[in-house]
């Protein structure tokens, strides 16, 4: 059992979830409300990581963040480090990889907020930001919780992006899924079993807990 890899995976999932919540909330709201004529392009871009093979995403990120690309070169000049094969590099990859899993549930619940409620808030003097925080967010709680859990669990199980972008440095970029891969490669099936079991149990427990809170959230205010 590779506890160091598990701790790293949990840390990566937590950091990714926090960053993605901050990023996806405004993005999902914008996608829900915009009347921009190219919004379908934005929609497709956001959904793309869901369908792309993770290795493809990881490969492009490796090229884009590497020292030979303009972005990578700029980062190297500014920070003195290069992102590939580091923990921050993994975070960048995970954020992109899990973006649709954060945005889609939020969008679904934002779209369910009645336009009349927004208009009522505006007529009561509430700015758009206040309307979002006092009306839209509380009414979208279940969607936001779902987004957070899906992001966390999805990041926990990521493999392809990590392999391409992070390599396999113990304590720095070796995540639990890479550890399982290593254990299988070295024919240590017993260790692989234990690690995989922990991962399955953890993901299952988190999802079950979320569905439970969602049920409660759904019945708290009877629909009228």
């Amino acid at each position: 059992m590779d506890w160091i890899a598990l701790a790293l995976s949990l840390r990566l999932a937590a950091v990714t979830t926090v960053i993605l919540l901050a990023l996806a909330l405004p993005l999902a709201w914008w996608l829900t409300t915009t009347r921009w004529r190219w919004r379908h392009v934005a929609d497709a871009l956001v959904a793309l990581p869901m369908l792309l093979p993770p290795t493809v995403l990881g490969y492009y990120l490796l090229l884009a963040l590497g020292p030979r690309s303009p972005v990578g070169a700029l980062l190297l000049r500014l920070t003195g480090t290069s992102l590939p094969f580091t923990f921050p590099g993994l975070v960048v990859g995970s954020v992109l990889y899990s973006l649709p899993f954060a945005v889609q549930p939020m969008r679904a619940s934002f779209a369910r907020v009645d336009q009349e409620l927004l208009e009522a808030a505006w007529c009561l003097g509430a700015s758009r930001l206040r309307t979002f925080s006092r009306v839209v967010l509380p009414l979208s709680r279940t969607g936001i919780v779902a987004a957070a859990v899906l992001t966390f669990v999805h990041t926990l199980g990521e493999f392809g992006v990590v392999l391409m972008l992070g390599g396999n440095l113990p304590g720095r970029t070796r995540t639990v899924s890479v550890a399982i891969y290593d254990q299988v490669q070295s024919l240590d099936y017993a260790a692989a079993n234990r690690t995989a079991g922990v991962l399955v149990g953890l993901s299952f427990a988190l999802l079950a807990l979320t569905y439970r809170t969602q049920r409660e959230g759904a019945t708290r205010w009877p629909t009228t």
Partner: peptide
Amino acid sequence: PQFRDVGFVAQHGALFPH
């Protein structure tokens, strides 16, 4: 609308359910 100082009530009242 935020700066018009009007009250607006529609057919179903639009109370905030939460």
